[in-house]
Design a protein around this nucleic acid. Structure first.
Lengths: 328, 328
DNA sequence: TGAATATGTGAAATCGTTCTCACATCTTCA
DNA sequence: TGAAGATGTGAGAACGATTTCACATATTCA
């Protein structure tokens, strides 16, 4: 079924059918004839043909590093809350933390003319910046800061600073399970916030007590083992994410080390696991849904062309959530 | 930049450029001229124009009920393992457990000519069946059984049966936190497998000890509270998923009920949370990655047209994983 | 009444590819 | 040598919509 056949059956030109489908600038009489034919035939316009001319899809591409992350899923729920109101659909692409996949999907989304892209990026390489610059599709960056782009990110430095200040009061020897410094938000900002606040609070952190882990429970478990072997006197273990912390806690359980009495443990993110484990994890809550909503709103504005050149940057609030895994 | 301009610049017809880009049936001399022009201009063919003619996208649509589920993320990792080998890309659509969203995305994927769809469905309504029948795009159903379609699903009945047989030995009074029976795999098959095996093992389950929960921790927590209020003598709590079980365990912790001494608890799925919590959860492991790989392989075969009409059904294996949350 | 404006319509161009077909040239082999 | 096959090429017709333009016809207003 094509628009031509519909036109023929309704006894009008295909332009009229097109108008009927779009702006509705059609007389009542023909309008009804067309409606009837469409109802009878179950015709739906070809998306690809439409795309070739008009380049509007009502689709938003969202690129995420991994599925199955609490923080990501919350950002996405914020995004879709806004977008579904505007009758736009979400296409997710998961890169499994692979930078090349990220580039590929960026390109795919652009080629397929999604109306906009939200990039939940992690690491930005030169290739990223080049591609982003070349792409006509509007992009909003979520959870990282990138110069020259609209981006929404949490204030990792101050969140970490605040947590560190709290912990400084009750810590003598601090161990840290951080992530790669290529990840600016999580790897650098959280680390710096912690180190600065601990220093201010009079706690010195031995560089060999800071270990780099992956974003997994397993990695948290393993690095905790190594850390404790080298520094058994540690009484505070600060983890870069809740997932890492839950691995650490599991390890401490297995070693019969009491939490928080012997070692207190903290995470970041207030993911669902943080309240599911025992002891419940002291952590930092970021306003992920809000971040998602903001990102989507900004993107929509740029798509509408209202704020094409305006680059908006936004830092989101945080709360420190004190639970059972810390002293005091 | 269009193929016409490239053709003009290279002094050939656009058909030749098209051949250069596709089958390569071009003389060496012209081939080089074209290559040079393309390199200079950075030309990339328009995906939408290509689509209008050829209807091949190298895209596979995957519809999931929610992001941030361990089982789903493992299936997806299985899927993408197979697809990335074939240079196909994955588009995810998340329905947030909304049937209408599921229909919408099914339609969107079909309209945008993805090469195939993997539907991680939950509930099939008449509207689903109608739409699926109308769509030309090949679909494989994952994790549920649907008559007339290729589907891969885990053997929930026997998995539950096996778990139930194990628990029957050490249980007197069983409570169950199940999910809606509209979800055949999780809501019906698991429940039946459990009830049949318990009966066989001589354990009668009072219908009022079976409660219906949502798929969340919160729901697990709340229903556990209600269940214990009504039936404090329960000594075994079987949950339909690990997530529900982790909510239940949290509740038991709060009530200072010892696990597994007073009440033993089990889940389904062997998600990462099941080993993160304490006590570590006895659960059933399904081969989710394998399921994903199978689904992708079958889909690819159907896309290649090799097995267009062949409907394949497949049940996947399971293991019972005994951990600390059960007696024995 | 006649000009200006609003309203509706269809023919034809356009979007940027792929694909079919006809045709040319070059090998190969009996 | 001449027919059959391989190899390479371009013209032009799809693919199925939107959009521009020109042209009716109906309405409004001085």
């Amino acid at each position: 079924m094509t628009i031509n056949e519909i036109a023929k059956m309704a006894g009008v030109s295909r332009a009229t059918v097109s108008r009927y489908l779009n702006d509705g600038y059609v007389s009542k009489e023909k309008s009804e004839r067309i409606k009837q034919v469409i109802d009878e035939t179950g015709y739906t316009p070809s998306v690809s043909a439409k795309l070739l001319r008009s380049h509007r899809t009502n689709l938003i591409g969202v690129i995420i590093p991994k599925i199955s992350s609490d923080s990501i899923s919350r950002m996405i729920s914020g995004i879709s809350e806004i977008l579904s109101k505007e009758d736009m659909q979400l296409m997710l692409a998961c890169t499994q933390n692979d930078e090349n996949e990220e580039l590929k999907y960026l390109k795919t989304f652009n080629d397929n003319h999604v109306d906009g892209i939200i990039l939940l990026g992690t690491i930005f390489t030169a290739a990223h910046k080049k591609l982003l610059k070349e792409m006509p599709t509007p992009v909003v960056i979520l959870s990282q800061k990138l110069e020259g782009y609209s981006c929404i990110y949490s204030d990792d430095y101050h969140a970490a600073y605040s947590l560190g200040s709290h912990l400084a009061k009750t810590s003598k020897k601090v161990g840290m399970l951080m992530v790669s410094e290529r990840d600016i938000a999580v790897g650098v900002n959280r680390r710096n916030g912690l180190l600065d606040s601990l220093k201010k609070g009079g706690v010195k952190v031995d560089p060999s007590c800071i270990r780099t882990t992956g974003f997994t429970m397993k990695s948290g478990y393993e690095q905790t083992e190594i850390l404790l072997k080298e520094h058994p006197e540690i009484d505070t273990l600060i983890c870069a994410t809740d997932t890492i912390a839950s691995g650490a806690i599991k390890c401490l359980h297995d070693k019969k080390i009491s939490i928080p009495k012997q070692i207190q443990v903290t995470g970041f993110g207030d993911s669902s696991v943080s309240s599911a484990i025992s002891p419940a994890l002291t952590t930092v809550r970021f306003y992920y849904e809000e971040a998602g909503r903001e990102a989507a709103s900004i993107l929509l504005k740029r798509i509408d062309g209202k704020e094409k050149s305006v680059i908006k940057e936004m830092q989101l609030a945080y709360d420190t959530v004190i639970r059972e895994s810390t002293r005091v």
